[in-house]
Design a protein around this nucleic acid. Structure first.
Length: 609
DNA sequence: ATAGGGTTAG
């Protein structure tokens, strides 16, 4: 019944949005995806459908000692009953309960149950202590995790490979790679507890999380030489990391290498690869992978479909994304919160906030489907449309749903306030986020700085920048770009140049944006020849100008009435495969109407537009 | 009974 309803809703929204679609073709003019091919879906219908879900009821399942725990409340109830039983159940049963709660990711609940066990003098063993360490790790409380390790020695228990692997994971989650590697090496040296494939994959994942694919692959090669051979999880971890860095070719090489070794890919491997090619806009390659996996009887699951839905949404093709959702439902794969969040974001990107709100309400009607991502996405949608009051309402509504606003929530709202010129509210919210224990990150500061700069409060921006330096925050190039731009627009080209020149001493390298901002600033100050020097300099340093750089400098030259110089730059831009954007086009058309352009250049100008 | 891999937001 629900499925029927969903299908109808999907069909209805399909109709709605296809009308919008026709009305706004310009939204897709820069789409990197090839035009959506309806045949692409054909294979889904021709393939055997996914094996029908088992309809076995609870009664058919083998009777187990431990009751199935589906929520924390159950766990606490069962636990209380167990504590009252005489004789008391064995520690194994308690372990099973805690293990299940941990699997539900209710880590603090596990800790609290464990503490009750201590009070009730129930013995501890390696299993339960390892579960507890794992929970502390996931709660970012590695210190407590290490103190549990102390208990091993107090109780005469020997930590095993599970314990050490858990600890290594804990270090990695806290970005303490050095300690993780140290522990790993200690395991090898000590000799009585060798790392197994789990330990290796954990460390490899840690390297990947830091973006250190080289170290990850190095460790993979080490495994290949040793006794502990890499398995599918190890390959999947690295393949995914390469894909996330859009190094899809490297990922595909590893993929074939893995298959040569007789390790067959699974749905996770294919989902990572598809995510990689989708990120590059290689829709045909995504289709090929999809066909390939299905031909191997590996069926896309909700993760795989979510990648497709999200990619389509990011390209503005919400209608097509809804088509994919339709297909998921037909294949008995229920869209989940992630699916709907992607759809919502897609609607927001198109400015269709009402439609996004409908998706949000659909999630609400289906039970507690909304999460912090859902709120953040919708809040962002409203902020981008400058509907700040609606955004604030949603923000206030979160707590009623038992959801806690996180750093992203605050960053989104802070940006909304800044862009709406509500600087006073920005300050209030910034204090509030810290009072609520949500730590500002570099992104928060970049949002605050941007707000101050665009609201002409440059001295306050510089003051905040000073605070960041004093706090020894990891200041990145984005922060400098904002400040340099702020200074340029305020006409303080000298200070901007000083900041720019000081970059290398801070260990930072200017990126395309930095150069473009400087070029713009120099043009505003009338220093066009210096601007052109920057254009040459950036190329020499291996930082290649993009379309935006060329448009910026061309506009700069036109504004400075150096039309012929601008025309030369247009020629270069066209040669490099870039073209004039809307505002440059307007300037050029203006020049043409005033007959200020050499007619000989007309064919070239046509090419650039 | 304990440890590792894929999807969404700023």
């Amino acid at each position: 019944m629900l499925k029927m309803m969903m299908r109808n809703i999907a069909a209805a929204s399909f109709y709605c949005s296809s009308r919008r679609w026709r009305g706004m073709p310009w939204l897709h003019s820069n789409s990197t995806l090839v035009v959506f091919d309806n045949n692409y879906f054909a294979f889904f219908h021709s393939q055997p459908s996914k094996p029908i879900k088992s309809t076995r009821t609870k009664l058919d399942q083998p009777v187990r000692d431990s009751p199935k725990i589906t929520n924390v409340e159950d766990a606490f109830n069962v636990f209380d009953k167990m504590l009252q039983m005489r004789p008391r159940p064995s520690v194994v049963l308690f372990t099973q309960i805690l293990g299940q709660v941990a699997k539900l990711k209710h880590y603090s609940a596990v800790i609290s149950l464990y503490n009750q066990m201590g009070v009730s003098r129930i013995g501890h063993d390696v299993y339960i202590l390892t579960i507890v360490i794992n929970c502390y790790c996931h709660l970012n409380q590695m210190g407590f995790g290490l103190s549990v390790l102390g208990k091993f020695f107090k109780l005469g228990l020997e930590p095993n490979v599970f314990t050490f692997t858990t600890l290594i994971n804990g270090f990695l989650l806290e970005n303490r790679v050095v300690q993780a590697v140290e522990l790993f090496n200690k395991m090898i040296k000590a000799g009585n507890c060798q790392p197994d494939v789990f330990t290796f994959s954990t460390l490899i994942k840690g390297f990947c999380m830091r973006g250190d694919n080289r170290a990850a692959i190095q460790l993979l090669r080490k495994m290949e030489e040793g006794v502990c051979k890499p398995d599918l999880v190890v390959y999947n971890t690295i393949i995914d990391s390469l894909c996330k860095d859009t190094l899809v070719d490297d990922a595909l090489n590893l993929f074939s290498e893995m298959m040569c070794k007789g390790i067959s890919p699974n749905v996770i491997t294919y989902t990572s690869l598809m995510n990689g090619v989708c990120k590059l806009g290689e829709w045909k390659e995504a289709t090929r992978l999809l066909n390939e996996m299905v031909s191997k009887n590996i069926f896309p699951d909700v993760f795989t479909f979510n990648v497709l839905v999200d990619t389509l949404c990011k390209e503005g093709m919400v209608v097509e994304a809804e088509g994919v959702v339709e297909m998921m439902i037909q294949r008995d794969i229920d869209p989940d919160t992630v699916t709907y969040n992607s759809l919502m974001d897609g609607c927001c990107l198109r400015g269709e906030i009402g439609k996004a709100q409908n998706v949000f309400e659909l999630m609400l009607s289906k039970g507690s489907m909304v999460n912090v991502f859902s709120y953040n996405t919708l809040i962002n949608g409203y902020c981008k449309l400058k509907k700040i009051d609606e955004a604030v309402m949603l923000f206030l509504d979160m707590s009623h749903k038992g959801l806690v606003a996180n750093t992203v929530t605050y960053n989104t709202l802070l940006d909304g306030f800044g862009k709406a010129g509500r600087i006073q509210d920005t300050h209030k919210l910034f204090s509030e986020m810290q009072a609520c224990g949500q730590l500002p990150n570099v992104r928060t500061y970049s949002i605050l700085l941007d707000g101050l700069c665009t609201n002409r409060q440059l001295s306050r921006a510089m003051q905040l920048f000073g605070e960041m330096e004093a706090k020894k925050l990891d200041i990145d190039i984005v922060i400098y770009n904002i400040l340099i731009e702020g200074l340029c627009i305020a006409g303080k080209i000298e200070s901007a140049r000083d900041l720019f020149c000081g970059l290398s001493s801070k260990g930072l390298r200017p990126d395309v944006k930095t150069y473009t901002i400087m070029i713009n600033g120099l043009c505003i100050a009338g220093l066009t020849s210096e601007a052109e020097k920057f254009l040459i300099q950036m190329e020499e340093k291996g930082c290649f100008p993009d379309g935006c750089t060329y448009n910026t400098i061309i506009r700069g030259f036109i504004h400075n009435k150096q039309t012929s110089r601008a025309m030369v730059l247009i020629r270069t831009m066209v040669e490099k495969g870039f073209s004039a954007d809307a505002s440059t086009t307007e300037l050029i058309v203006n020049l043409l109407s005033k007959d200020e352009v050499d007619p000989a250049l007309l064919p070239l100008i046509k090419k650039s537009l």
